[in-house]
């Protein structure tokens, strides 16, 4: 109990890392957006295609589905923007399209219901620890 498991060179590294984190997060000390914890913005392609980026409200889906429905049955990885989703796959019934097909939930012609984010919002899990410690993600591609 209480005995350190961190070796000396590693300690220095961690110290520097923390200093960096403090610097990076210091400028973001007052959070701007008040969106729901866990809201996922995916902007792999939307900005480039001239669409608003989709926002996935985790809270809304959690009320209706257990995590495993999407993350096991449908194969969504635990990584915002890490799933190579596109509209063709959704129309084919993959990912969001497994439910958003007009049967379980409304279908894909309701573009603006998902594509509802502010243009230029980068891919992120809103309110995540990583986001808070490291600061906001870089602007989405094509929005410099």
């Amino acid at each position: 109990m209480g005995k350190s498991h961190i070796h000396k060179p590693k300690r220095n590294f961690i110290l520097w890392l923390m200093a960096l984190l403090m610097l990076a997060s210091g400028v973001e000390i007052v959070p701007q957006a008040q969106a729901e914890y866990g809201d996922v913005v995916i902007n792999n392609q939307s900005d480039k295609a001239g669409m608003r980026p989709p926002i996935f409200p985790h809270w809304f889906h959690r009320i209706r589905f257990r995590c495993k429905v999407c993350h096991a049955d449908l194969g969504f990885k635990f990584q915002a923007g890490g799933n190579q989703i596109n509209m063709l796959k959704i129309i084919d019934g993959e990912f969001c399209g497994a439910c958003h097909n007009g049967e379980i939930a409304w279908s894909v012609e309701n573009c603006d219901v998902c594509h509802s984010g502010k243009p230029g919002t980068p891919t992120q899990v809103h309110g995540s620890t990583v986001q808070k410690l490291i600061g906001k993600p870089a602007p989405a591609a094509g929005q410099k």
């Binding site: 701007q32 957006a33 008040q34 969106a35 729901e36 809201d39 913005v41 608003r52 926002i55 409200p57 809270w59 809304f60 309701n110 603006d112 219901v113 594509h115 509802s116 984010g117 502010k118 243009p119 919002t121 809103h126």
Partner: peptide
């Protein structure tokens, strides 16, 4: 909320948290 576009055409169709 800072993420949604208040000008989005379907913003009022979404359920409020």
């Amino acid at each position: 909320d800072g993420l949604h576009d208040p000008q989005g055409p379907a913003i009022h169709e979404l359920q409020q948290p």
